[in-house]
Write a protein that binds this DNA or RNA. Sequence first.
DNA 1: GCTTGAGTTTACGTTAACGTAATAGTAAGT
DNA 2: ACTTACTATTACGTTAACGTAAACTCAAGC
Lengths: 133, 133
Amino acid sequence: MSEERLFTISDLARDFDITLRTIRFYEEQGLIEPQREGRQRLFTHRDRARLKLILRGKRIGLALSEIREILDLYELARDEASQSLKLLQLLSDRKKQLEEQRQDIDAVLAEIDTLESHCRQVIDTMTGKETTA
Amino acid sequence: MSEERLFTISDLARDFDITLRTIRFYEEQGLIEPQREGRQRLFTHRDRARLKLILRGKRIGLALSEIREILDLYELARDEASQSLKLLQLLSDRKKQLEEQRQDIDAVLAEIDTLESHCRQVIDTMTGKETTA
DNA sequence: GCTTGAGTTTACGTTAACGTAATAGTAAGT
DNA sequence: ACTTACTATTACGTTAACGTAAACTCAAGC
């Protein structure tokens, strides 16, 4: 019932602010598999969603190979319901890793806060807004 | 008054589980500047602390060039108290970026949770622990 | 019919962050 | 004196993730 709207490569490049080369590279690496109309690539919403996941993965520091693993697992979870135990193991591994990353980020954010207030204090002192004397 | 205990390159390599090459590379890139006794490198607690910061930076996906920037800013904040305004700007930029990364991680964690419970459901169903029928 | 603007493939180039020899100095133990 | 352990420098190699250039196709507009 829903006329699947299709996207061109430039559509996605513009939407996600990446180059055409990047998208072609991701296909070359088997991360997405757009349809073809002649030679031209055509992307579905599903391709778009995968691309979004890929970029999010990149932002949190995952390698493309790891991202592909995860994407495959998504498919696996859709299709076969077995292997779920193995999948669960992989998921919890990844989860642990991400939680560590989060802690790192929190630690850095805390340090930044400290530095910030330190700076503010210095500036206040230099601009005359003294409290002590 | 405090006899600064010094570390050898292997000390730090062992402590942080990195290679000697990595440490030498960081020096080559100007991220740390250990003293020399003859040719041999000797690291202070300050060097050690910097190394810790470097590795934490790496874990949250910063490039060495960015880490160097930040380390420099730490020095700057120690020495000159001016430029603090510029520093504040840089800090808030970095903060914003880190918060985005955190959100990404949270999003991924949430998706993992979903996938996990999905898996558990599937497994329960397959092993007979049905609820509905 | 020609140009423009999308898209395509092929293939070599590039950067970061080390790995990996090869070679050599130096201090300690036997 | 010889080996072992730790250190050093020099320098070429490697992997990931694209960049970039060259050369081509194909439909649209004038």
